[in-house]
């Protein structure tokens, strides 16, 4: 059965189409245009076909090497961030109070990091981690740890990951909390009557009921962490060496630092495609796995 279309709706959507066209579609076409041409400035363009793409996807070239190196860094970073934030978010959500004054309090506390602009977050951690004046960096060194994110790649990675966990775990926690709140009380009562352990309650009730919000949380966190730019740029600037040079930072170096617009354009297209494909695959898999329950339910 089709919903009856309301033609007026198109009028309301029109401004959005216009904005999207100017802000996304036209720039995107420009990027596509750049990616198949070469330019030496002065607005002179030469047709280069798929040349940039070939170079980009061939790890033996200089461009390809840089691309794949930063792509792996991105994947490692997203993987690490998800592996920490999702379980942590779930744990925090489970630990949050269900009623009383504590609800509002913990919601506000959790929301605080989400309200801080990215570059400010970067700046906070950049200072916080400094071994000369930063509380964390200085403290760690005083405790005997040889911590210096400017010189040591592992320290740099740890700093960025901890920063991201600090910044974004609350989002996962809030989403999970919303999912948990929607579970009717009868389920918990039934589980306690069935003699379920705390772990069984988690795996048999809470996790399945949180599934939908977890899909959203994972998607959001993947996209966001895969596109990370501001914070590592502020904290490490991509260093030490290239150890925290993610695709986005590489892209900016290429486009604005070296003015290789063609290469940068090709890289951004591939970058975008990777994100779209990963999200699409993930979303399809998760929703298909959930779709089988639709057939039985629902009043017609």
């Amino acid at each position: 059965m089709e919903k009856i279309p309301n033609q007026k709706a198109w009028l309301l959507v029109l401004p959005v189409f216009a904005i999207v066209a100017f802000s996304a579609v036209i720039p995107l076409m420009t990027v596509v245009n750049y990616s198949v041409q070469d330019t030496f400035g002065n607005n002179k363009f030469f047709w280069n076909g798929v040349g940039w793409y070939q170079e980009l996807l061939d790890p033996s070239t200089e461009l390809g090497g840089r691309f794949f190196a930063s792509l792996w860094r991105n994947l490692a970073f997203s993987g690490a961030v998800l592996a920490i934030q999702i379980p942590l978010g779930i744990i925090v959500a489970l630990a949050m109070p269900r009623e009383g004054w504590g609800v509002a309090f913990s919601l506000v506390v959790l929301a605080l990091p989400l309200l801080i602009p990215w570059n400010v977050v970067g700046t906070i951690w950049q200072i916080f981690g400094r071994s000369d004046i930063g509380l964390m960096g200085w403290g760690l060194n005083r405790l005997g740890f040889d911590y210096n994110y400017v010189a040591n790649p592992i320290d740099a990675w740890l700093t960025i990951i901890i920063m991201d966990v600090w910044h974004w775990s609350s989002l996962v926690a809030l989403l999970c909390y919303a999912g948990l709140k929607s579970i009717p009380e009868a389920y918990y009562q039934a589980a306690s009557i069935d003699g379920a352990s705390r772990w069984a309650v988690f795996t048999a009730i809470q996790l399945p009921k949180m599934r939908h919000v977890l899909v959203i949380a994972i998607l959001l966190r993947f996209m966001d962490s895969f596109m990370i730019y501001t914070e590592p740029f502020v904290v490490t600037g991509g260093g030490p060496g290239n150890s925290t040079t993610f695709l986005s930072i590489e892209l900016v170096k290429l486009a604005l630092g070296q003015f290789d617009l063609g290469k940068a354009a090709a890289m951004s297209i591939v970058y975008m495609l990777i994100i779209i494909i990963v999200c699409w695959v993930f979303f399809t898999v998760m929703t298909n796995a959930g779709a089988d329950r639709k057939g039985a339910g629902g009043e017609r």
Partner: peptide, 20 residues
Amino acid sequence: PTLSGKTSLMRAMAGLDAPT
């Protein structure tokens, strides 16, 4: 009974859904 089409029929009468 449940799922016999009562609600669908009402929605079609009301104009909430257009029939195929």
